[in-house]
Amino acid sequence: NITNLCPFDEVFNATRFASVYAWNRKRISNCVADYSVLYNLAPFFTFKCYGVSPTKLNDLCFTNVYADSFVIRGDEVRQIAPGQTGNIADYNYKLPDDFTGCVIAWNSNKLDSKVSGNYNYLYRLFRKSNLKPFERDISTEIYQAGNKPCNGVAGFNCYFPLRSYSFRPTYGVGHQPYRVVVLSFELLHAPATVCGPKKST
């Protein structure tokens, strides 16, 4: 009989979030998941669920729940959905087409922007091929755009693959930082360890 609440607040209220290319994953298990708490945590810009209804979450049980978190800019949030393409979905964080879970995003301009520009958040701009779903690539190998090998040196047709967002508070919403948490629900042929409040007794 599990009584402890799932530590969603640790994920959502973390002081620092990860850069999207090096997104963070927390496995959540053996706890009571009260998803209604999430609705009250922040004024969400996005709370979209796929393959599951957000209002039914509190009635369900899962084997595992994974919470992935990272920062992107406002106009990239739409890429965090099944079947999307674009720089983020292709080279940084890719959801599977049959994704079961929820994408939660909110504006973090007050936390993640600086007047002089916050350069701490990076994204991958160049990659030889698209990522597979939930693949994480943290390599910093020089990207070869031409025929000549780069031998690890940046220059003509040889690019450092990561680029930094420079978040400034005066930017338009599309270029402001957004914190994203992706909850993916895993149903294996194994005992369910993460249940809503109704199912945990």
Rank of each mutant, 00 (worst) to 15 (best):
N1L: 06
I2G: 13
T3P: 09
L5W: 10
C6Q: 03
C6V: 03
P7M: 08
D9P: 07
D9L: 11
E10Q: 11
E10N: 06
N13Q: 05
N13F: 10
N13L: 11
A18M: 05
V20N: 04
W23P: 04
W23L: 02
W23Y: 06
R25Y: 02
R25L: 02
K26V: 13
N30C: 06
Y35A: 09
Y35M: 14
S36W: 04
L38W: 06
L41I: 12
L41M: 14
A42S: 08
A42H: 12
A42E: 11
A42Y: 10
P43I: 04
P43N: 10
F44P: 15
F44Y: 12
T46R: 12
T46M: 13
F47D: 00
F47Y: 11
K48V: 07
S53L: 08
S53G: 09
S53W: 06
L57F: 08
L57Y: 05
N58T: 09
N58Y: 07
D59F: 07
L60K: 08
T63D: 12
D68H: 03
D68A: 01
D68S: 02
S69K: 01
F70Q: 02
F70M: 03
F70P: 01
V71E: 05
I72H: 01
R73G: 06
G74P: 04
G74I: 01
D75S: 11
V77Q: 03
R78D: 14
R78M: 10
Q79C: 02
Q79D: 03
Q79N: 04
I80A: 02
A81Q: 07
P82G: 02
G83A: 07
G83Q: 09
Q84C: 06
T85P: 05
G86N: 03
N87Q: 11
I88T: 03
A89D: 02
A89T: 06
D90I: 00
D90V: 01
N92P: 03
K94A: 05
P96G: 05
D97R: 08
F99T: 00
T100A: 07
V103G: 00
I104G: 02
I104A: 06
I104W: 10
I104C: 06
N107Q: 04
N107I: 04
N109Y: 10
K110G: 12
D112T: 02
D112W: 00
S113D: 07
S113F: 05
N118R: 09
N118M: 06
Y119N: 15
Y119A: 15
Y119L: 11
N120G: 12
L125H: 15
R127K: 05
R127S: 05
K128Q: 12
N130R: 15
P133T: 05
P133Y: 01
F134H: 09
E135I: 02
R136I: 04
R136G: 02
D137L: 01
I138S: 10
E141P: 07
E141R: 08
Q144F: 02
G146C: 04
P149H: 10
N151E: 12
N151V: 08
G152P: 06
G152C: 05
V153P: 07
F156R: 15
C158I: 02
C158M: 03
Y159N: 10
R163L: 07
S164R: 13
S166T: 14
S166E: 13
F167P: 06
R168S: 13
Y171C: 13
Y171Q: 15
G172M: 12
H175M: 13
Q176E: 07
Q176C: 04
P177G: 02
Y178T: 08
V182L: 01
L183I: 08
F185M: 11
F185N: 01
F185V: 05
L187T: 14
L187S: 13
L187K: 12
L187D: 11
L188P: 12
L188E: 14
L188W: 10
A190R: 11
A190N: 12
P191E: 14
A192C: 11
T193M: 11
V194A: 11
C195N: 08
K198G: 15
S200D: 13
S200F: 12
T201E: 14
